[in-house]
Design a protein around this nucleic acid. Structure first.
Lengths: 196, 196
DNA sequence: ACACGTTGTTGGCGCTTCGCCAATAGAGAT
DNA sequence: ATCTCTATTGGCGAAGCGCCAACAACGTGT
């Protein structure tokens, strides 16, 4: 079989298994059986089990980015934030299991880095949507604070998807209101103050 | 040796090892050697390796709670929030490695539950500090949204401790300003709106 | 004082998993 | 047709975990 197809097939099977059960409970033997190949082949394509895991998670997180809403002249910051939050929630709803499975990283530095990169991409998206590019380039603190907002978004989304203490509209309104206040009040205030 | 002491000693050694390296890379043999006991004794005290891990993490997270600042009549919400944020940051600074190690949970449901409980404790603390008890009891959404704030606090703290894109005073001001706006504006607004 | 049971403690057995490697087969090229 | 290259396999050795039987040390009852 074509090596690329085989690699992709193995990855797909590994993803479905790693979605349901944690790393330690999924054996390479099981993945190989699910893919209909021998166990040694996994070591042939991906070196070790961890590398296979990293590849699987990395592809899980590689979702098509939310399209940036086209800039409508006269659209308020609030409108654009609303649009962005909506896209984020839709993306989450479509890929529930994927995100929920990838929330915790088990303290593995490399895996942490993979997830970290995905989160940084979210921050990029926010920056682009609200037109914060120049400021963010000169002030790294902006990215730091938006990562904070990203953490809030993940936590509230988990409350919605997992625990059910919040509904989707509630999460939306909560995040939208919060982000507006961050952009208009909190972030400028923090940037103005001396870092001490 | 006294069983309690032995158990505690093993736990201590396991904690230091699990702090530095992820679960899969720490062998029971190593823990036993570090504790100066035989490997089988770990299975005697804690049933399985996972249970030992859970016990270690649980004790890591069992930090002395931040004392609730005594209620000064006339103290504004902002003052109390400031005090609370300060306590949270101090706690983080004192137990850096512990928290950073426990941030990711590897998708393990039981471990997730342990960390989840600790985070819920943080929410309890916030509720108590800002005097939101009655409202939180009748409206579970309040807890959900405060969990969102807790996620933001963790993310910004990681930016400060790990990545260094934020300083501690900046994190403080950021969280304080945000929480004030949450309590005064965002949360009431979300609660008033129909959940749809 | 002596036997006895309780319990902390150890070493070892069996099973599973993982990484590696030699052996095989099958396709494409000369 | 043969040769080579590579995908693919089965198996070997090491390591780790859970369990259990044996040992020892201490207290207890008679």
């Amino acid at each position: 079989m074509d090596p690329d197809d085989r690699r992709q097939q193995i990855l797909a099977r590994a993803q479905t298994l790693f979605r349901d059960r944690p790393y330690g409970e999924v054996s390479n033997t099981e993945i190989a059986a699910a893919a209909g190949v021998s166990r040694g082949l996994l070591n042939h394509y991906f070196g070790t089990k961890r590398e296979l895991y990293l590849a699987a998670v990395a592809e899980m997180l590689d979702v098509p980015p939310v399209p940036v809403p086209e800039y409508v002249a006269g659209a308020s910051v609030r409108d654009r934030v609303c649009e962005s939050v909506n896209g984020w929630l839709q993306l989450l709803e479509d890929n529930q299991e994927t995100w929920l499975a990838a929330l915790g990283t088990g303290g593995d530095p490399e895996l942490e880095q993979v997830v970290d990169q995905a989160r940084e991409g979210i921050v990029d998206h926010i920056i682009e949507v609200v037109g914060l590019g120049p400021l963010a380039r000169s002030r790294p603190e902006v990215r730091g604070m938006l990562r904070g907002f990203s953490g809030m978004a993940e936590a509230t989304s988990a409350e919605w998807l997992k625990r059910g203490r919040l509904t989707r509209p509630q999460v939306h309104e909560f995040l939208e209101e919060t982000l507006v206040r961050l952009l208009e009040d909190v972030i400028p205030r923090v940037l103005d103050d001396p870092p001490r």
